[in-house]
Every structure is written in structure tokens, then in C-alpha cells.
Design a protein around this nucleic acid. Sequence first.
DNA 1: CGCTTTCGTTTGACACGTCAAGCAGATCGC
DNA 2: GCGATCTGCTTGACGTGTCAAACGAAAGCG
Lengths: 180, 180
Amino acid sequence: MTEPRWLTDAEMHTWRGYRRMRGLLDLQLTRDLGADSGLSDADYDVLTAVSEAPDRRLPLGELAASIRWSTSRLSHQVSRMEQRGLVARGPSTADGRSATVILTDHGWATVQAAAVHHVASVRRHFIDVLDEADVAALGRIADKVLAHLTDATPPTPPRRRRSSGGSVAQPAPEGGETVG
Amino acid sequence: MTEPRWLTDAEMHTWRGYRRMRGLLDLQLTRDLGADSGLSDADYDVLTAVSEAPDRRLPLGELAASIRWSTSRLSHQVSRMEQRGLVARGPSTADGRSATVILTDHGWATVQAAAVHHVASVRRHFIDVLDEADVAALGRIADKVLAHLTDATPPTPPRRRRSSGGSVAQPAPEGGETVG
DNA sequence: CGCTTTCGTTTGACACGTCAAGCAGATCGC
DNA sequence: GCGATCTGCTTGACGTGTCAAACGAAAGCG
């Protein structure tokens, strides 16, 4: 294929638009998150994941898997968050090798407050800008692309299950309590 | 607002789907680009931008603006690419302060070859997975979100975190020559 | 003209991701 | 038991991004 099928104007428009939206939307949400709650995306992903766990604690490995991070990355990240008092490390009851990531009270309060702002931010810059049909269409589009990507991905673990890769998970609703 | 409007199931599905698609698609395209052409996304963005300039040369500042990078980031990046012989730095004819980024022959050949593979990759994992209606819909969605974002941007201070802006265009078609 | 200010770029310290070791606790085979 | 191996996590080197300070060239201004 000396001459590939270049993109048509419409395809090019969509591709560029997607790329630009991706960049700016991410930038805006990251900014809002930092301004509203003093958290980075990484912080938020970790906090929401731990907050959803049974006792607000999870073995580091499981946590890493649930948000699809390498354990190395998570270990580094937890070290930083530990110094800020958002999480703590604890030993595993069962396995001496395993480390447990524990959400501190401060971390819990932080993520609860952050979630409120973050959901508002996602609505303001993304969801509420679209109508119902758009939301449905984009959902289908993402599903199609994901089906393709997770299908034909032999090199990487073809795991599906457990969504989350994202962030805006609303932190565990937790009975009636909605943060203090 | 003590109790925000949480996301509905459909909205949540779309949001998570978008986030996951974003992550995996980016990962896949980056992987392909590296495997096919030995380039990083950053390399490719810079190369395509310079390749589209009149004489395949651009003042560093203009180049930075065109791909929406900080000049600092571009300066670092150009330094690295310079060592690999993809681009060269030259003085500006008019302004003694300004540096010009010049695409070398090697850089030109590299980006031409890379573009072929990259377009194929974008088609394979993204465009060709969708039908015409999807492409049109996504284009409109991106336009809506971008209209909102570029509209109401100024309120937030000139803080900055990652960005990657767009690009990934097809490099300058340039007369009949389509690289060898 | 000298002095300050502005501008384009570079540089350095630092944040954060990846990869490749390193290490201690668990497990298995004998 | 005990060494070999596996596992879960940590660590260190390194690449790349950010911010802020540093610089030299170009303007403005008395």
C-alpha cells in the first residue's frame, strides 16, 4: 500500500474534533478538580476506587487492577498520597507480602467533597452540553470502539469486566450518609 | 448544593465509555505509532506541524502555538528530536531572539512514512469501526463540546497541566511526491 | 544614547510515568 | 525442613511534562 486511504473531509473533521475535544475537556476537568478539591486526576481515581471498597481498604494489587494501573505506578502514587494524609498503608492480615491501602478519614472527607464538584464539572462541560440523543449516540460509539479494541488485543490481557477505568465514579453512596 | 444531580445510568454509561475509549484508543494508537515508525505522539505532532509549513520550517513560538504546546515543552522536545536528526534548529532571519525549527530530510522521510501507517491505524481502530452516521454524530458532539469549552474558557486562570492539542494530521500532501 | 521593559527561548528543579531490578514472604517438591 | 521458585510490592534509573527563573535581543522612553 503505497497510497493509503486518506481520511475524507468528514472523517478528518471528526478525528480532529475528537482529538481536540479530548485534549481540552481533559484539561478543563483536571483544572476544575485541582481548583475545587486540590486533587489530581490520579488522586481522584485512587480515592474513588478505595472509597468503593468494603472497608475503604484494598490490597494494593487489587486496587491497581481495578483502575488498571501498574502496581509500580500505584506504589509511587500511594507513597505521595500517604504523605498528604489521604491514604495510609497497612499490612495484610493474611499475606505478609501484601500491602493494604487504607482510606483515611481525611481522604474520605476529601473524596466525598470532591465528587460533588467533579460531577458538576462533568455535567457543565460535557454531559449537559449534549442532548439525550447525543449521550446515547456517544455511548454506542464508545461501545463499538471498545468492542473492537478489547477484542483484537492479544498482546495485552484481554480482560473486560469491571468498568471504572474512569474516574467520575460517584464514591460509595454509603447508606444515608453523604459526607460531612 | 448539598446534593448534586448525579449522573443517570445512561449518562454514566456514556461517561465511563468515553473515558475508557479515550484511554484504550490512545494507548493503541501510540503503540502502533511507536511500533510502525519509532515515533512518540509528541514526535509525530511536531513533525506533522513542521511538515505543513511553507519551507518545512517554522519559528519555535509559532510551532508551539499551532499545536498548542508551551514553548518550554516544545523547546525540550525539539532538543531531543534534534539529537535524533529529525529536526534542526536555525536562527531567524528577522529576529535574533527567535529560533527556527527546520525539518531535516530524514525528518521529512520519517513523517511521510509514518503518516501512511498512522492513518491506517486510525482507520483500523477508530474510523472504520464506525459507520457514516456515527462519524457525523461524533463530529457534531465534538463541535458542541468544543464550542462550550472555547466559549467559556477565560474564567479560569492561566494554569496549565498536560495538553496535547490536536494534530495528527496527514502531513503536507505536497505535490505528487509521496515519500519513498 | 543609556535604562527599563518586553519578548522568545532556554534551562533547571521537580512531578510523575515506565521499565527493570531487588527483596521479603509464600509455596512447592523433595 | 529446606532450597528453588513464585509473588506482591518497592525502589531506582530514566524519559518526558510543568513551572518559574534566567537570558539575551529588541523596543520604548527620558
